[in-house]
Design a protein around this nucleic acid. Sequence first.
DNA 1: GTGTTTATCGTCAGGCAGACGACTATGATC
DNA 2: GATCATAGTCGTCTGCCTGACGATAAACAC
Lengths: 251, 251
Amino acid sequence: MPYDPSAFPPFAVTVDLVVLTVRTHSLCALAVRRGESPFQGRWALPGGFVRADEDLAQAAARELAEETGLSVHDPAAPAQDNGAHLEQLATYGDPERDPRMRVVSVAHLALAPDLPAPRAGGDASNARWAPVEELLRQGDGRDGEPVAPLAFDHAQILSDGVERARSKIEYSSLATAFCPPEFTVGELRRVYEAVWGVALDPRNFHRKVTGTPGFLVPTGGTTTRQGGRPAQLFRAGGATLLNPPMLRPEV
Amino acid sequence: MPYDPSAFPPFAVTVDLVVLTVRTHSLCALAVRRGESPFQGRWALPGGFVRADEDLAQAAARELAEETGLSVHDPAAPAQDNGAHLEQLATYGDPERDPRMRVVSVAHLALAPDLPAPRAGGDASNARWAPVEELLRQGDGRDGEPVAPLAFDHAQILSDGVERARSKIEYSSLATAFCPPEFTVGELRRVYEAVWGVALDPRNFHRKVTGTPGFLVPTGGTTTRQGGRPAQLFRAGGATLLNPPMLRPEV
DNA sequence: GTGTTTATCGTCAGGCAGACGACTATGATC
DNA sequence: GATCATAGTCGTCTGCCTGACGATAAACAC
């Protein structure tokens, strides 16, 4: 039996994506330039409408694939191909958040390795990786690109996503989602340093991550791509929760 | 300029509430009996449609007040009246989750002290506090009331809410939201024991909570309402994040 | 008073993190 | 080829925190 549509107000439901990666020692997010009003020409988070027959996670995965070509890493799959990690972040539904209509946006958080070049409908100039502190910096616009802040409430969403990532790598093995399938302890440490914005002691970090059972699995190979002494290569192990957690240094 | 409504599918947006409290040493959730189809007569989480001019948090607070009479504790307010803690939990949007229509539900988690008696539109028989393990027990129905599981995907939502509460009292002072404005260390310990379902050492617990700066503020009073030696009374202090956290014992 | 209950203080050993020294193995430079 | 710079890896030491548990304190019931 269909339901009386007049009994409730109709909403548009969208998914917005906070896609994070680490490049050149800083935490970056994917931003797309808006082609239409409102906020035309401003930078925004990628996103779009949820389709009628789609689950929220499916919609987020579809948008992620459309924007970056990344597929979502299936948590059940044992092998760590270079799919991204995707999880629901939070939902934003202020009545005024979109001037056109009542839109509720289910934001998702994606963590990806560095490699992919952004592509927004084939047009590279309309999508870019930008350091999050640049995207969140409120319009001082000295020399950085984005004089204007992000469209809609996307600065809030991005900020929440970054905070989620920062806290989640403390107690989970999620930092490996920023790394290629095989990586060194030093590369993993640079991920933590970029996400947290701090410097970590390489010796204590090495002791901690190699001493946590299930976190890292040695592949046997070594690499020297970072210069210096060759480093052992690892894959992410099966452990998802770290106990005891990594400790984020005080401010 | 209004937006073309045919460009996106319309959704109904609801809020559902996981309201938790601790009574007689066990973690309980608020359940209401459904009066109409689908799932007529089954127990469900309280909830309702988000109104056209309402924020999501406002809608959740309104539903909470309607069902329990509880007001939401303003995080900015210093005084701890017996308002409840309310936070967004997650959003559920499977296309099949409601057989009538496409409904996206933004679930919220509320933590409240024991006192309030439930009332669902004035009819007490249609609302009750039930131990969460009873609500989540899948239809063995030996002697417990709910032979049938919760309506819709509410078992999943309740399960997610309980897990959120269990983990959040580890690293935040949120357990005090289950306590009356003034409480003893022993009462707070019983909250942890009920939520985690474990027994804690009273001496180590006492040392930990009284030694964490900003967690507890002594009021000067004492009480003997638990029997035994009189215990000091405390209020919740200003600290919201506990560092280092409370440690949940292994299984 | 004796027993019971709950609260509170103390002690001790083990584990883990921060600080930091020392050594190793590569490539770059002279 | 020696030297230097760079990164990686192994150890040591100290202090803090936790878990296990003994001991004492202050109420109530009988």
